[in-house]
C-alpha cells in the first residue's frame, strides 16, 4: 500500500492512464508540500540556532516565537521594487533563478521519503535509475548560477560566476567518485544498484560506517554544492558584494536564497539516504518519513555549525583541496569499498 495506489484508487473510474497520471501529480504535490514545509521549518531553525550560538534571541516579534517571520520576509521580498540592470542579457537573466529552483524541486521528487502513517509509502519516482536522475537534476542548479552571473553584466557577478564554475568542477568529480563507491557496494547486494530505494534497503550496516572517507568527501562536497561558508565562493559577501546574485532584487533574489537553504536540506537528505540508512529505524513501516527527517535535521544542524564557525576559503586553496586532497581520498575510498565488497563480501 502506498500513497500512489491510494490516489489511484480514488481516480480509478478515469481509466488506467489518467488515474495514474493524476495520482502521480497529486503525490508530487504532497511530496512538494512536505518538502517545502520542512524547508520553512529549517529556515526558522537556522535563525533560532544562529541566534542562540551568537547569544541573541532571534526572531520573536512576528507571530508567537517569531514563527511567522519567514512569511513576513517572503511578503517583503514580493513587495519590493524589481530593478532590472539596463544592460542585462534578458532571457538568461529571467530564467536563471527559475533554473535554480527547478533543479532543486526536481531533485526533491527523486528522494525516497519512506512511509507516512495511514497512507504508506511516499516515494514519488519509481524509476530504476534514480541515482542518475538525482544528480542530473542537481547539475541544473549551477547552470542557473552561472547564467545569473554572466547575464547580469556586472563585474562582481561575472567574477562570482567564474568562481562558481571553478568550484563546481573541482568538487563534482570527488562527489561522483564517492557516490560510485556507494553504488559499487550496493551492487553486491541488490539487483537495482542505481535505485535509491534499493540502496536504502541494502543498508543493513549504513554505508557511512563502512566508508568513513566517502562520507567525509561527500559532506565537504555537499557544503560546496550548497555554497555556504566556508565554500561560498560564488557569493562571498565581503569580497564580491553578493556574487552572482548581486543584481537580483525582490522575489528573484528570494529564489536564490531559497536555493541556498534548499540545497543544504537536499544535501542532508541525500547524505542520510546514501550513507546513514535513509528511513531505517523502529516502526519504519509506518513512520519512516520521520526517521529520514530526524537524520536530515541533525545533519542540517551540523551544516549550520560549519557555516557559522568557519571563515571563507580562498578560491585557489579550494581548488587545491578539491584536486589534491578530495580526489585522491575518493579514489582511495573507491578502492577500499571495492576490497570490502569483493574481498570480504560485506
Amino acid at each position: 500500500m502506498s500513497l500512489l495506489t491510494v490516489f489511484q484508487s480514488w481516480f480509478s473510474p478515469l481509466g488506467h492512464f489518467w488515474s495514474y497520471a493524476i495520482a502521480y501529480f497529486l503525490e508530487a504535490v504532497v511530496g512538494l508540500i512536505l518538502a517545502a514545509l520542512s524547508l520553512i521549518i529549517m529556515i526558522y531553525l537556522f535563525r533560532k540556532y544562529m541566534a542562540r550560538l551568537q547569544r541573541r534571541i532571534g526572531p520573536n516579534r512576528v507571530g508567537k516565537y517569531g514563527l511567522l517571520q519567514l512569511i513576513a520576509d517572503a511578503m517583503k521580498l514580493m513587495g519590493k521594487e524589481v530593478i532590472f540592470p539596463a544592460r542585462r542579457d534578458d532571457l538568461p537573466y529571467r530564467v536563471a533563478p527559475l533554473l535554480v529552483i527547478f533543479g532543486l524541486f526536481a531533485a526533491f521528487f527523486i528522494i525516497p521519503y519512506g512511509n507516512i502513517p495511514y497512507f504508506g509509502s511516499l516515494t514519488i519516482s519509481h524509476s530504476d535509475v534514480t541515482v542518475i536522475l538525482l544528480f542530473a537534476f542537481m547539475a541544473i542548479m549551477p547552470i542557473g548560477e552561472v547564467l545569473a552571473g554572466i547575464s547580469s553584466k556586472n563585474k562582481y557577478s561575472l567574477t562570482g560566476a567564474m568562481r562558481a564554475v571553478a568550484k563546481d568542477i573541482s568538487f563534482e568529480v570527488p562527489m561522483m567518485l564517492s557516490i560510485i563507491a556507494v553504488v559499487l557496494m550496493s551492487s553486491a547486494r541488490t539487483a537495482n544498484a542505481l535505485n535509491l530505494q534499493s540502496i536504502i534497503t541494502s543498508q543493513v550496516i549504513p554505508y557511512g560506517i563502512l566508508e568513513p572517507l566517502g562520507i567525509f568527501v561527500f559532506f565537504v562536497a555537499t557544503v560546496a554544492r550548497a555554497s555556504h561558508t566556508p565554500f561560498d565562493l560564488g557569493e562571498s559577501e565581503s569580497e564580491l558584494v553578493s556574487g552572482f546574485s548581486t543584481e537580483y532584487t525582490g522575489l528573484r533574489f528570494g529564489l536564490f536564497y531559497m536555493g541556498l537553504f534548499g540545497s543544504i536540506f537536499l544535501g542532508s537528505l541525500i547524505l542520510s539516504v546514501f550513507y546513514l540508512g535513509g528511513y531505517h529505524g523502529p516502526f519504519a513501516g509506518s513512520i519512516g518519513w520521520v526517521w529520514l527527517m530526524v537524520r536530515a535535521f541533525i545533519l542540517v544542524l551540523i551544516f549550520f555549525t560549519v557555516w557559522l564557525a568557519m571563515p571563507r576559503i580562498r578560491i585557489d586553496k579550494f581548488m587545491d583541496l578539491g584536486w589534491k586532497y578530495l580526489l585522491p581520498i575518493s579514489f582511495i575510498n573507491l578502492v577500499i569499498s571495492g576490497v570490502l565488497t569483493l574481498g570480504f563480501g560485506w
Binding site: 551568537q54 547569544r55 565581503s238 557555516w307 557559522l308 564557525a309 571563515p311 571563507r312
Partner: peptide, 9 residues
Amino acid sequence: LGMLTPFFY
C-alpha cells in the same frame, strides 16, 4: 573573512 559568530562575542 566570513566568520559570522566571533563578532558577537
